[in-house]
């Protein structure tokens, strides 16, 4: 039997790397697609912009469907799609596909919420100046929603750290998987404690950085 230290030395660096890949890919997907979907959800529901009930409803249902499926199930459900996209179903990149789906849907809702929090009066004043939509989005909506968007990103990153632990089921690896494989299945309590401690530190760190950024952008 290897000592806890040996296991950690052998497995931890690659586990951290795998976690980083999974979170990096899904977060990137969220920041692009989640932001876009969240923006469309907001714009199509706000009477100030383009109220489009049907578009909003269809998109809302799609997002909700993804969010209703338990992540473990989504992981398995999306295997054919994963195969199609990345041509493999094993490894952190493959695990990133279902992770990205879940986090895009999750992030989109948070983004919609962050935009909805923006003071309607400020947007109205911007519209009254005669500014075009692009300018209003860039210089008013995003600026005013920035602290909310940063907080949404923080919450998403932390959720991703949790979700990525389940990615072990499809051979995704990562820190959470290390905890399950060694700490749980092989009764390596030392590994379990070390990895959980590491996760706590990472989550705290993410929260701290997120809060700090949100504060910098809050000018109230």
């Amino acid at each position: 039997m290897d000592s806890t230290w040996d296991i950690l030395q052998l497995e931890l660096p690659s586990a951290i790397w795998e976690t980083l890949i999974m979170i990096g890919i899904s977060l990137a997907a969220s920041l692009v697609f989640g932001l876009l979907i969240g923006l469309i959800l907001y714009l199509s529901s706000s009477p100030l912009f383009f109220p489009r009930r049907t578009l909003n409803a269809v998109m809302g249902v799609l997002v909700n469907v993804i969010r209703s499926v338990p992540f473990v199930i989504l992981l398995v459900l999306l295997i054919p799609l994963t195969k199609l996209i990345v041509n493999t179903t094993i490894g952190p990149v493959a695990a990133s596909v279902p992770l990205a789906f879940a986090s895009v849907a999750f992030f989109a809702r948070l983004v919609e919420g962050a935009f909805s929090e923006v003071d309607k009066g400020v947007l109205e004043a911007a519209i009254a100046t005669g500014a075009g939509l692009g300018l209003i989005l860039r210089k008013v909506l995003f600026v005013e929603a920035m602290p909310g968007l940063i907080r949404a990103t923080t919450v998403t990153v932390i959720s991703l750290i949790g979700y990525s632990a389940m990615a072990g089921l499809v051979g995704g690896g990562g820190i959470g998987d290390l905890a399950i494989q060694y700490g749980y299945y092989r009764y390596e309590t030392g590994v379990m404690i070390a990895t959980v401690l590491l996760l706590i530190v990472i989550v705290q760190g993410a929260q701290f950085v997120g809060d700090w950024c949100a504060r910098v952008f809050t000018r109230k």
Partner: peptide, 27 residues
């Protein structure tokens, strides 16, 4: 047509300078 409001409705995340510059950029 300029407009001012009861609650001012300034962009809270932008400086005074940028709040005014916004209207100019709109034009």
């Amino acid at each position: 047509i300029g407009m001012i409001f009861q609650h001012f409705n300034l962009i809270s995340g932008a400086t005074v300078y940028n709040n005014i510059a916004f209207a100019l950029k709109a034009n």
